[in-house]
Design a protein around this nucleic acid. Structure first.
Length: 411
DNA sequence: CCCCGAACTTTGCCCACATAATACA
DNA sequence: GATGTATTATGTGGGCAAAGTTCGG
């Protein structure tokens, strides 16, 4: 990734696609992401104008520059003078927005010289016809209408998510960025802690009042049919790094009963408000891989499409649930109760069912095959016939204790 | 309920080498 | 820009050791 478009190698890259881990010019962005419904859902954002390699996460109003989290910290976190710069979070988009629509997403859109030019050239005649589905266009990562939100504390010091595995967070609630980046990752867990009133996240959002996973029948018995349909899709998403579901905890049983803060939830819903309310925890977030590698903070990102009473989780399959190690997320899904939901009497009524569900889940997981994907069949073929000593390859001609071909030993 | 040790399970590393990827002329 | 050569990086599987987990006393 660099200054030039990863696709055409000709134009300047302006947009970063996390799913493709690619920097693209507007023209290629449109071409690539109008190919099919899946690619259209790829979430994109601006490229950091400083390092030109990472997705921009915030825009410095004073400097008129879009920055990734790392560059933001380097630029604003270390210098007292620049730390007071006003910054806006940059939100993601999907679909193939027109110039006007870009402007509505990013109020600063036309302030970006290269964007303005490119836009006139490349997007002038574009429309959003193919995005008749508002959801595809509506920011899958939960930007608000303006497409940008002023934020205060940006995750920062020592938490460069670009290079490490921390997860940046942002809030849908506009906040002023008048302070230097503070300690990272403080906000995200708090956002979803039960019992903690999170200002701005829930209070203005009626939808959230109804967003209770218990209403969603996500019992284990259903997960086959629930996830089955998403299987192929999710595989592609996982392969492409376009992961909507990011799970990372170790112990399902522990987290299953854990009502305390288990992580962030990002959702892409039919309701923009819902989206706004919950997705920002992961919006503008680290690339999927960095999120995946986050060991310290359990992260749950799911995609809810459709009404709340009929949520499906794209990107979450029965396998992906298991693949991510019995995590809080899977338990959440399987138990039909969000991890941030405080214990309540009703939930105890279902404890028996839950135990059964967990048991069945564990058994299923036990028998599940972890299929390894072989990238180079030729290498596999060679490895399959290579002689070994205690499992290790040996030089040709050396004594061996295992020959896969005839299961004999030379010594 | 807590602690300890044994048994069991999971994870990650090692090896050689063909081949893919990259750099350079 | 196209081609050829040299160098570097990658990936493949079975066995082992270490780490982690479970379970019974």
């Amino acid at each position: 990734m660099g200054y030039l478009c990863d696709f055409c190698g000709d134009q300047r890259s302006l947009v970063y696609c996390r799913s493709d881990a690619a920097c693209l010019c507007l023209s290629c962005d449109r071409n690539v992401h109008s190919a099919n419904a899946l690619s259209r859902r790829h979430s994109r954002t601006l490229v950091c104008e400083r390092c030109n390699s990472q997705p921009a996460f915030v825009r410095c109003v004073d400097e008129k520059i879009s920055l990734c989290q790392n560059c933001d910290w380097l630029g604003h976190g270390t210098s007292p003078s620049s730390s007071t710069h006003k910054r806006q979070s940059i939100n993601c988009y999907s679909g193939c927005p027109s110039a006007a629509e870009f402007s509505s997403i990013w109020s600063f859109f036309l302030d970006i010289p290269s964007m303005g030019e490119a836009c006139e050239q490349e997007l002038g005649l574009m429309s959003i016809n193919e995005n008749s589905n508002k959801n595809a266009w509506a920011s899958p990562e939960g930007q608000n209408v303006s497409g940008s939100a002023e934020v205060t504390d940006l995750p920062s010091k020592g938490k460069s998510w670009a290079g490490t595995s921390s997860v940046p967070e942002s809030s849908s609630e506009p906040r002023i960025l008048d302070q230097p980046p503070g300690p990272a990752n403080e906000c995200m867990p708090k956002l979803y802690c039960p019992g903690k009133k999170v200002s701005g996240i829930y209070e203005d959002d009626d939808l959230y009042d109804d967003f209770i996973m218990d209403e969603v029948d996500l019992q284990l018995e259903n997960y086959e049919e629930l996830f089955g349909m998403a299987l192929s899709h999710s595989e592609e998403l996982f392969e492409n790094g376009g992961i909507n579901s990011l799970f990372e905890t170790k112990d399902m049983s522990a987290s299953a009963g854990d009502s305390h803060c288990q992580g962030a939830v990002a959702a892409e819903g039919s309701s923009a408000e819902l989206v706004n309310a919950i997705q920002p925890a992961c919006s503008n977030a680290a690339s999927a891989d960095s999120m995946m590698s986050t060991k310290t903070e359990p992260i749950v990102c799911f995609t809810a499409r459709q009404s709340l009473s009929n949520i499906s989780f794209s990107g979450v399959t029965k396998d992906s649930v298991g693949d991510y190690q019995d995590c809080g997320a899977s338990s959440m899904l399987l138990m039909g109760e969000p991890p941030w939901c405080p214990p309540c009497p009703e939930s105890s009524l279902h404890s028996a069912n839950r135990s059964n569900a967990v048991m069945r889940y564990k058994e299923k997981k036990k028998t599940r095959k972890f299929e390894k994907k072989v990238r180079y069949a030729s290498r596999k073929a060679r490895a399959d016939v290579r002689k070994r000593v205690k499992g290790r390859f040996v030089k040709a001609g050396d004594v061996y204790d295992y020959d896969p071909l005839n299961q004999t030993r030379s010594c």
